[in-house]
Design a protein around this nucleic acid. Sequence first.
DNA 1: TCATCCACCTGAAACGTTTACGGAGGCTTC
DNA 2: GAAGCCTCCGTAAACGTTTCAGGTGGATGA
Lengths: 351, 351
Amino acid sequence: MENRFGRAQMNLKELASKLGLSPTTVSRALNGYPEVNEATRERVVAAAKRHNYRPNARAIRLATGRALAVGHVIPLNTRSEIMNPIFADFIAGAGDVYSRNGYDMILSIVADEAEEAAYRDLMSRGTVDGVIVHAPKTNDPRIRVLKDIGLPFVVHGRASGAELDYNWVDVNNRRAFQRATEFLLDLGHRRIALVNGLEHMDFAVRRRIGYSDAMDTKAVAVDPALLSSSEMTEINGHRAAEHALSLPEPATAFLCASMLQGMGVRRAIEGRGLRMGRDVSVIIFDDDLSYLRNGEDVPIFTATRSSVREAGRLSAEMLLSVIAQPDSPPQHRLLEAELILGQSTGPALAP
Amino acid sequence: MENRFGRAQMNLKELASKLGLSPTTVSRALNGYPEVNEATRERVVAAAKRHNYRPNARAIRLATGRALAVGHVIPLNTRSEIMNPIFADFIAGAGDVYSRNGYDMILSIVADEAEEAAYRDLMSRGTVDGVIVHAPKTNDPRIRVLKDIGLPFVVHGRASGAELDYNWVDVNNRRAFQRATEFLLDLGHRRIALVNGLEHMDFAVRRRIGYSDAMDTKAVAVDPALLSSSEMTEINGHRAAEHALSLPEPATAFLCASMLQGMGVRRAIEGRGLRMGRDVSVIIFDDDLSYLRNGEDVPIFTATRSSVREAGRLSAEMLLSVIAQPDSPPQHRLLEAELILGQSTGPALAP
DNA sequence: TCATCCACCTGAAACGTTTACGGAGGCTTC
DNA sequence: GAAGCCTCCGTAAACGTTTCAGGTGGATGA
């Protein structure tokens, strides 16, 4: 094959003939097999470099029967909830691992009703060796599908209610929100509003449970008027806070599922002439996104923090290990979020 | 090949023998070649469906010499400026086009000093048929590299100073900022602060030019104290506004390169007890991101808007057409941003 | 001295498609 | 009735690797 400039792409056979060796030996030399003389190996490696030889990926894939690629299937229609800010950072973490291991990362944007077909396709056409499942819902059907077709996968998050065991990497959302709630309770807050994500998402459910567990333990009644659940946008955060602050017994503290919601809450607080951290406390869940930093040297928001980029890295590593040993028992990795102190929390004011 | 359940993957040869036909005919029938009887074609298609046959992508790629994939190379180290919120939406738009055309989208996360090597690799190993270049800098060296190695590409944005012609899709950033500035000038504003992105990025330069062009035309002097340039984060927006509002002659209007900066500016305004849209005007550039909406029914910020998702779609289409006809002359697509009126602008107050 | 073994290398098949080339049979055309 | 054409299909080579099954020559051991 030639590129448009007529320079022929060097291939195995040609390189071998230049060296006066068989393709077999050259291949083995380059791939580090033992049955080749050290001297000839060096000769081969040098020649490969000199002639700028790169093995053709398409041929390797066909010959080995491996795709050397992993897939990330992104549902499209589900408005924003997945194609969300999280995603870019997760991908960055995972992609780093892939390229370090010679794997390609394939992104499939797919209408969400076609997601199952997409998995089957990726599998049977042999485009990928495994996939990462994003944004699991409670009782997510994709897990069964993937088990059925035998495509290795790792879930970022968990799908409670799934009867099957599977590989996952997740943050301990319940515990994070429990701790954050306890912290606010310790500061004397009782009217704590939860500004949650959409509660058909698994992580949102766990967060609410963590919140109410903490409230229950301290025997503080959960007021449904203080609970909200919506897409994690600035506007929704603002709206939720407007509501919670206008109650007869207004909220004195907020627990937000995302940075963006937290920004909306802050706007509502300041819009009322109050000051965050003094009049009203706020804790957010901070995914440590590269372009949405929680302050610089000193954090603005008190937050439970867990890097989604790191989660991407871990998920990718787990997936590669599953691909290497498909019959190993399911792996789990539960990450603990750290509670970091910012300027957005303070003791509850005497009423 | 068998999957882990022992079900053999159907392949061409087997399907052909089941049908009593040659692989050639079956292949032709499935790929819509004319030299096959309509009746047998139907028979083949039916059998393919019945036996759940999917052609092996690896074999197709090797046989045809095409990768059926396009690459997006994302520089990693450049702190945040690229792995930015824009990215997810752009990818969503592009990926949609790819999957509709049977192409895979490959993401390469690569340390930015290794980017050139990454392109060479993608090319010579045959993993992709073309690439999209993201976030061009002024006089971006990548363009020369890609021309050299003969890999089809489309740039999202432009790299001024490049002496070569190349394919690009870009927003008319200069014009958008010129119009926005004119609009503020028409409202009577004279102290207009520009909260720009990092000015080694091409788009940021163009935006500044648009801004100063408008100022010059109206013979309003550009005060360097009102210009700032930094990563497009909320915090930087806040900082820039704090500064511009604390000048002896404070800014009465802001022009922000991004939504996040705009949010920071708003926070600074409201933090001073002023009201956005009445006391201080703000215009942002709105990339129409799916998770960072500018209000819902009625926009919050007055903005110059251009959907980055749409840009992704157009870039992808252009790239596929370039791949199909590599020797066609370079294509350009300049998108005009629309100026939409929100609640963040109003007439300048009498001093 | 001869069988055995080891280190190193080769030939050829395989992976699952596409596609250049060819060929058989029926139909037109004169 | 033969030449030519068209329709439909098959054979086999290609794509560029990996890898199985050997093979050669020299060293080793009895």
